Amino acid sequence: MTIGWLLAAEEGGFGVDFNILETNLINLVIIIGVLYYFGGKFLGKTLSTRQSEIKTAIVEAEQRKKDAAAALAEQQQKLAQAQEEAKKILAEAQTTAERSRDEILKQSQIDVERMRANAAQDLTAQEARVMRELQQRIAALAMERSEAALPDRLNEDLQRRLVDSSIARIKGE
C-alpha cells in the first residue's frame, strides 16, 4: 500500500510528499488559516473578556488605593488629634502638679506656724504649771519649817496669848 500511495502522488492525486520545506510551509499556512477562521471569534471573545476583567481589576485596585489613602489620611488626622490631646493632658497635669505643690507648701507653712504656736502655748502652760508647783513646794517647805520651828519657839505663855488674841478677834471683830 505504500507503493500505491507513492504512485498516486506522482500521478497528481493524493500522496505523500517527501519535500520537507514545501510540505511544512503549506501545512503551516493551512493551520494558520484554520485557526484564524475557527479560532478568531473564540480567541477574540476570550481576549476581550480577559481585557474587561483586567480593566475591572485595575479600577477596583485604584478604588482600593483611594480608599486606603483616605483611611491613612483619616488615621493620621486621628493620630495628630491624639498627640494634641496628649500634649494638653500633659500640660494640665504639670499645671495641676505645680498648683498642688504650691498648696502643699502653703499648708505645710501653716502647719509649721500652728505647731510653733502650739509649742509656745505648751511651753507657757508648762512654765505656769512649773511655777505653780514651785510655789506649792515652797509653801509646803515653808509650812514644814514653820511647823518644825514652832514647837521650839512656842512656849506656854506664847500659846496662851495667841489663843487669847484669836478669841478676842473672833468676839470683837
Rank of each mutant, 00 (worst) to 15 (best):
Q81K: 14
V29H: 07
A70Q: 15
T23F: 13
I58V: 13
Q63I: 05
A73K: 15
L35K: 07
Q63T: 10
E74P: 02
R50P: 00
G12H: 10
Q76P: 01
A69L: 13
G39V: 02
Q51F: 07
K88N: 14
N19F: 09
I20Q: 15
D67R: 06
G13V: 08
E53I: 03
E22V: 10
F18G: 12
A86K: 12
D67C: 04
V16H: 07
E62W: 01
N24Y: 04
Q75I: 11
F14P: 02
G12K: 10
G44W: 02
F42V: 10
L72H: 14
E62V: 02
G12Y: 12
K65W: 05
A93N: 10
E62H: 03
I54T: 13
K88V: 10
A82W: 01
E62D: 05
Q63M: 04
L79T: 05
L72D: 12
I58E: 11
Q83V: 13
Y36C: 04
E60R: 05
A68N: 09
G33W: 04
A71N: 04
R50W: 05
V34Q: 03
Q83S: 12
T49I: 00
A91V: 08
S52P: 00
I31V: 11
E62S: 03
Q76I: 06
E84K: 14
K87T: 13
N19M: 11
A82Y: 02
K87Y: 11
K78Y: 05
F42T: 09
E85T: 05
I30L: 10
I20F: 15
F18K: 14
Q63D: 05
L35R: 05
T46Q: 00
A80D: 11
I89W: 03
L47T: 00
I32V: 12
T49V: 00
V16Q: 11
G13K: 09
K66E: 12
A91M: 07
E85K: 15
A93P: 01
V29K: 11
R50D: 02
D17C: 09
L43V: 07
E22F: 09
L90R: 11
A68F: 03
L25V: 14
Q63W: 04
A93F: 04
G15W: 00
E85R: 13
G39C: 05
F18Q: 13
F38H: 01
L47C: 00
E60C: 01
F18H: 13
A80E: 11
K66F: 06
K65P: 01
A70T: 13
A93R: 13
A57W: 04
L43T: 03
G13R: 11
T56G: 08
L90F: 10
Q75W: 08
K88P: 02
A71V: 07
Y36Q: 07
S48M: 01
G33V: 06
D17N: 12
D67A: 12
F42Y: 07
K66Y: 03
K87D: 14
K78M: 08
K78H: 06
